[in-house]
């Protein structure tokens, strides 16, 4: 088939496409991913028994906002990396802002604590399961966001995969907030972040294989 004939073929029939296709697809990904993470959390872990009590403490909300801001920033990254030629612009700053804020808070908290208490504050009582549970809760969003990204057009595959991983990690962390009993900034700045980075690393590694088009 000659190229001119291919052009004819492509231009014949329906050429209109709905607007904001990417935004709408990721809205579905987030809704489904969050619902699935919620079901996993309720089924496997359960809501923390003192949730009503915890919700009166600012640190509970700081933890949720940390995850929510990371979620929004990584959503921006995902949207841009799903589109050929769109630049990341200031998205890296938006991604690092909540992390730096949590580290700042952690530094203040650790500096004010007695030296022998610091390690305990960093490890909390669930450090050995926290990152893995966050990664577990992120899996539905991870699969759905990579699947959706493939239907769009990422051109920087490792970076795009990492962004999809960050998005799903943030969803996992946000839902995990409802179960997790930890309330310390040092703990969150360390183990929550690590939990979010597990799917991000997996996405960066898988991106070049699963996102090709």
């Amino acid at each position: 088939m000659k190229t001119d004939d291919l052009v004819m073929l492509l231009a014949t029939g329906e050429c209109a496409v709905p607007e904001h296709a990417a935004q709408r697809r990721y809205a579905v990904v987030l809704a489904l991913g969050m619902a699935a993470a919620g079901v996993l959390m309720l089924g496997l872990l359960g809501v923390r028994h003192d949730l009503a009590e915890a919700m009166r403490q600012p640190m509970f909300w700081a933890k949720c906002i940390f995850a929510a801001v990371l979620l929004l920033a990584s959503l921006l990254a995902v949207l841009r990396l799903s589109r050929p030629g769109a630049s990341l612009d200031r998205v890296p700053f938006a991604l690092s802002a909540p992390v730096l804020a949590m580290w700042g808070l952690a530094t203040v908290v650790l500096a004010g604590a007695a030296p022998e208490q610091r390690l305990g504050m960093l490890l909390g009582s669930t450090w050995d399961v926290c990152p893995f549970l966050i990664a577990l809760l992120s899996t539905p969003t991870f699969v759905a966001s990579l699947w959706t990204m493939r239907s769009l057009a990422p051109t920087r595959l490792s970076l795009a995969g990492a962004a999809a991983g960050l998005l799903s990690g943030s969803v996992g962390a946000l839902v995990y907030c409802l179960h997790c009993p930890e309330m310390g900034a040092p703990f969150i700045g360390m183990w929550y972040l690590l939990g979010i980075l597990i799917p991000a690393a997996a996405g960066a590694l898988l991106g070049r294989y699963v996102l090709r088009w």
Binding site: L6, V7, L10, V17, A21, S82, R83, A153
Partner: peptide, 11 residues
């Protein structure tokens, strides 16, 4: 060309 067509919803 086919890629541009198939991915035109990303513009």
């Amino acid at each position: 060309l086919l890629a541009i067509h198939n991915k035109r919803h990303t513009y």
